[in-house]
């Protein structure tokens, strides 16, 4: 049973990690909590589902296309909502409240378009391969999800550390004004960040949809709460922290079920979030800045 629970923890954790990655990136660079990340996550799942079911596209097209759509949605939110607030130098609560509004809007639209029922990808969309050691089972899907989210994380970390764009992003995280003075196109990089973060969120949505067969207008909300917990655990704004936080959260949930009781699965993760903020607001791994890459 332990091996199986470990497998469960890793595959759950990798989706949390992917979701948290985009969420933390926006905070690190733009300095705002984008609470519409859950809504973007949900729309990413729905767009690729629509491509697969309505236009019978193969998954390898629908997946990047879904990410692209989610990215555009994130860009749209940045341009329509976050940018005016930035220009006004609004209080940090304002983006939170506005993105809550955007989430309500997105949820309601998804419900109008797709209905309130759970939707799922057609069976056998993904090869149904299975590996087994003794009692422990591992599907190709689980492996792919874990590999894919680790890969996307590695790309992000590499981008932040090794590219000119990453350097610029880290400079912006350090000081927006100075970066602007240095000639860094701050506004364009904000758009870029929102786009990338949303695309990652969309990818997490598609993967959740593939592995757990449940796409619904309300899937974003519980994921958002988990994502917040993961990001706080790892340290807000810290890219590696978000990923580790995601895995840590996945593991702690699975082991809360194993050792304690499933009644308190969610209470455990939120309690962890709560205690972490009291003990180390900067998170387990973070220093609260993107400069750590």
């Amino acid at each position: 049973m332990w091996e199986q629970q470990l497998v469960n923890a890793i595959s759950l954790g990798s989706v949390y990690a992917l979701f948290a990655l985009g969420f933390t990136l926006v905070f690190g660079v733009l300095g705002v909590i984008n609470l519409s990340h859950g809504g973007i996550f949900m729309w990413g799942a729905y767009t690729s589902l629509a491509l697969v079911t309505w236009f019978s596209m193969p998954l390898w097209i629908a997946f990047p296309a879904g990410m692209l759509c989610a990215g555009c949605l994130g860009l749209l939110i940045d341009i329509l909502i976050l940018k005016p607030l930035r220009n006004r130098q609004a209080n940090h609560l304002m983006p939170m409240i506005a993105t809550i509004g955007a989430t309500i809007l997105m949820t309601s639209l998804a419900q109008g378009v797709f209905g309130a029922d759970n939707q799922r990808y057609p069976a056998n969309l993904f090869p149904d391969l299975e590996f087994q050691w003794g009692e422990t089972r591992l599907t190709l899907l689980q492996i792919s999800i874990t590999v894919l989210s680790l890969l996307l994380t590695a790309v992000m970390v590499w981008m932040l550390k090794r590219t000119r764009m990453g350097l610029a992003l880290r400079a912006i995280a350090e000081s927006r004004q100075t970066s602007a003075l240095l000639g860094i196109p701050v506004e364009r990089l904000f758009h870029m960040t929102s786009f990338m973060a949303a695309a990652l969120g969309g990818a997490a949505g598609i993967l959740i949809g593939l592995s757990f067969n449940a796409i619904s207008p309300f899937m974003g909300q519980s994921m958002l709460h988990k994502g917040i917990a993961a990001v706080i655990l790892g340290g807000l704004g810290d890219v590696r922290g978000a990923v580790l936080g995601g895995f840590f959260l996945g593991a702690s949930e699975v082991f809360a079920v194993t050792f304690l009781s499933s009644d308190y699965r969610d209470a455990f993760s939120f309690g962890l979030l709560f205690l972490m903020l009291l003990w180390r607001p900067q998170g387990l791994f973070g220093t609260g800045k993107l400069r750590e890459g």
């Binding site: 899937m219 519980s222 499933s262």
Partner: peptide, 16 residues
Amino acid sequence: ETYSRGDVDFKPQLTK
């Protein structure tokens, strides 16, 4: 074992 509304991952409970 229990789960809550909106949960999609039941594997830890089922494994138990």
